[in-house]
Amino acid sequence: MTKSRSKQLVICVDNEGYEASLEKRKIYVTLRDPAADKLGMLRIVDESGEDYLYPKAFFREIALPLAVKRAVLAA
C-alpha cells in the first residue's frame, strides 16, 4: 500500500475549544486509528506537527484526484 493511500484527507469545519490547535477550512491528514474511530474520534496531525485525537464531527472527508492528494501529502 502506498503512503498516499494509507492516509485520509479531511477538512476542518469546527474547532470550538481547539482554536489553538485547529484551523477551520484547513485540510488535515488523518492517521488510521480503529480504536479512536470507535469512540467517534479522528487521529489528526495538527498545527504542532504531532498527532492527537479530535472529535470526528469537526471534520469532513474530502476526495481529491490522486495527483493532487499526493502533492498535498508531500507538502
Rank of each mutant, 00 (worst) to 15 (best):
M1Y: 04
M1L: 10
M1T: 09
K3Q: 07
K3R: 06
K3N: 10
R5C: 01
S6Y: 08
S6Q: 15
K7F: 12
K7G: 00
K7Q: 12
K7H: 14
Q8P: 00
Q8H: 11
Q8S: 13
L9N: 05
L9P: 07
V10R: 03
V10P: 08
V10Y: 02
V10C: 07
I11R: 05
I11N: 05
C12E: 01
C12Q: 06
C12S: 07
V13N: 11
D14S: 08
D14R: 05
N15R: 08
N15P: 10
E16A: 04
E16T: 07
E16L: 03
Y18R: 04
E19C: 07
E19K: 14
A20T: 15
A20C: 09
S21A: 14
S21D: 15
L22N: 09
L22F: 07
L22P: 06
E23Q: 13
K24C: 13
K24M: 07
K24P: 03
K24E: 08
R25Y: 15
R25E: 14
R25Q: 13
R25P: 00
K26W: 05
K26D: 02
K26H: 13
K26M: 11
K26T: 11
I27R: 04
I27S: 08
I27T: 10
I27W: 04
Y28S: 06
Y28K: 10
T30H: 00
L31I: 09
R32K: 14
R32W: 04
R32F: 13
D33I: 11
P34K: 15
A35D: 12
A36G: 05
A36Q: 06
A36Y: 08
A36V: 01
A36I: 00
A36R: 10
D37R: 11
K38T: 02
K38L: 13
K38C: 07
L39P: 00
L39K: 15
L39R: 14
G40E: 08
G40M: 04
M41K: 15
L42I: 05
L42Y: 08
R43D: 06
V45P: 01
V45R: 12
V45H: 02
D46Y: 07
D46Q: 12
E47C: 10
S48M: 01
S48A: 11
G49I: 03
E50W: 09
E50H: 13
Y52P: 03
L53A: 12
Y54D: 07
Y54L: 08
Y54F: 15
Y54R: 09
P55I: 00
P55S: 01
P55C: 00
K56H: 11
A57F: 01
A57H: 10
F58T: 02
R60Y: 06
R60W: 09
E61N: 11
I62F: 08
I62E: 02
I62A: 02
A63E: 15
A63Y: 00
A63W: 00
L64H: 03
L64T: 01
L64K: 08
L64P: 05
P65L: 00
P65W: 04
P65E: 14
P65Q: 09
V68F: 01
K69H: 14
K69Q: 15
K69I: 04
R70G: 05
R70C: 07
A71N: 09
L73R: 05
L73V: 08
L73P: 03
A74Q: 14
A75V: 04
A75Q: 12
A75G: 05
A75I: 07
